[in-house]
Amino acid sequence: MTRYMIRRTLGALVVMWAVATLVFFMLRIVPGDPIAAMLFDAGDAGAVEALRHKLGLDQPIYVQYVKWFWNMAQGDLGASIYGSRVPVTQLIAEALPRTLSLAGLAFVLAVVIAVPAGLIAATKRNTVADHAVTFGAFLGLSMPDFWVGILLIIVFAANLQWLPAIGYVPLKEGFWPWLSHLILPSIAVGTAFSAIIARMIRSSMLEVLKTDYMRVARAKGLTRAMLILRHAFPNALIPVVTVMGIAFALLMAGAVVVENVFAIKGLGRLLIQGILNRDYPVVQGAILVVSAIFVFSNLLVDLLYTVIDPRIRYDT
């Protein structure tokens, strides 16, 4: 297990380096000039060159890359080149908890809905309940998250006035203010995720229920609850957990659009603003964090396999 963890961690670092390097060069290849964005195309040639020199953007691209990589290896992601030169780590530290709160709550809500829905659909196959879950899953997958967010704002914030429409309140200012500002965006982000998990649980459970050992368990006279919860569901979890790990990372991507709909200054909004401003350090830092979440989510899923099924071992 230790050797496996070391190998996977090193592999994760290589993947993050490759992603960050690709983003570094792509940002400098695509059309657009960050200096022009900062000066709104109004600066004279002297001011443009002076600012370019100050930010180090007049150096050869390989020199910029070596400096960036050396600083990144030491934990320094640079400073925003737009505005007040705030360190990127500070911007990410302010934005990341908001995005993680949104994605985490969306994950919890989706799982709470999807698990019982998927179990009901699998155990009551071809009944009204199964058709209802299947229809709801297809509906959830078909609706864009930003459209769901706008619809929720219109119904629950504007008309009913039950929940706030926009903004974010830190948890330290109170549990209910924090939760109330995240309920609507979490539902918007988690709707499609819930549909995916429900469909996956249904499919995996149907496969398990047809196995020989489930027939033997039924022949032994075990109760229905024991059959489903003790034998079928644990054995159906491995493909479901795989999808959950990937989908949780994708929730971060879904939060990019939803954060803008609900005016939450999270990582997604920071990334979009950085792209619009051509703010290289901000975009590079934000994508590096997102790639780290993707990579280590998959690593966590691999470790959960050994918890779900003790027969799985990572000895090499």
Rank of each mutant, 00 (worst) to 15 (best):
E49Y: 00
L251D: 12
G11E: 11
M205P: 13
I6D: 14
A137R: 03
Y305K: 13
L251R: 10
I272N: 02
F24N: 11
K210C: 08
K54H: 15
I275L: 12
V112Y: 08
K172A: 10
I308F: 14
R269G: 00
G140W: 01
V257L: 06
L251H: 05
I275D: 02
L119E: 03
R269V: 01
L96W: 07
V295I: 12
P60D: 06
T191H: 01
D41Y: 10
L77I: 01
I228K: 09
Q64G: 09
L105C: 13
A93I: 03
M205E: 03
M26W: 13
S142F: 01
K172W: 10
R278H: 05
G104V: 04
P87C: 03
F262G: 04
Y305W: 10
L27R: 07
I81D: 00
V111P: 06
Y82I: 00
L237S: 12
L13R: 14
I197G: 11
R269Y: 00
E94K: 10
R52Y: 06
Y280H: 04
I154C: 02
P281V: 01
P234N: 11
I29N: 02
I275E: 01
L57Y: 14
I197F: 12
V30S: 02
L13H: 12
L171T: 12
A95R: 01
I238A: 08
F107Y: 07
E94Q: 15
G56K: 12
R199G: 03
V111F: 11
R311Q: 10
I29M: 07
P31M: 05
L10I: 12
G285C: 08
L179S: 05
I196G: 00
V261K: 11
V189P: 08
K124A: 02
T127L: 01
R85D: 06
M26T: 12
